[in-house]
Amino acid sequence: MPRLITVPMVILALLMTAIMVVTLTIPVHASDDDSQLLKEIDRNLNPESYESYRKLINIEPDGKKKEYVLFTVKKGTDKIASLFISPASEKGRSTLRLGDNMWLYIPNVGKPIRITSLQSVVGGVFNNADILQLDYTAEYNVEKREDNEKEYLLYLKAKNRSVAYDRIKLWANKTDKLPLKIECLTEANMLIKTLYFKDVKDFGDGIVRPSVIETDSPMYKNYKSVIIFAGIKKRDVKDEVFTLTFMPNVESLRSHGN
């Protein structure tokens, strides 16, 4: 009896299977192109310098909600400040981030105090790093990239230990290069939280981005947090706005039209 299946045939079959798998999901090691892609995703999400109005909603398992409205200004890669507009109990609080430095100003306390990125000024799933999010390129390097027909999957690694999440997996749409989903992970790849980007909206001035970000976390089972963007527009403010001394005055940046 001639042998129908020979060793070279098996090797060939395995090779073909491997090629098929590889063509379906192509792992590509990090390159300048990947860093450029991450930059594009950053720019599609936000202009480098902007102002925005966001609402944060914490939703408990029984449907009970707590809402916060924030005004935010960001400049360049490492400066961002936010002001709580409501509810009344939080009104006037402002947060400032200058690179790895973060502060919280509470009107009652009357002076800025240093906070850390892993703390949370609003409770629930969001921590301070989520609220004062800088560009991903400012904090992360692309380790590798995987592509399929419709999506990119970027594996990001924190540039230093002061970044809130050691690793991030970022899925982005190939057509508009906007994030679809982000998983925030520890150094040991343990999932901390997942962000889902939804409802792409045209905010004008060329800014087309998801208007809703839903977040859940295995650490807060059945809890959900949502960020809704009401407005975002390009704005360049002076560097002096991003200082401790200016923190009690962030409200003055809001125009009466808003």
Binding site: I57, G63, K64, V69, V226, A230, H256, G257, N258
Partner: peptide
């Protein structure tokens, strides 16, 4: 306290008054 599934963001919530 307020319960509910829907969430909304009305522009009046961000209006600045003198």
């Amino acid at each position: 306290s307020v319960y509910g599934e829907d969430y909304s963001f009305d522009v009046s919530e961000i209006e600045k008054k003198s």
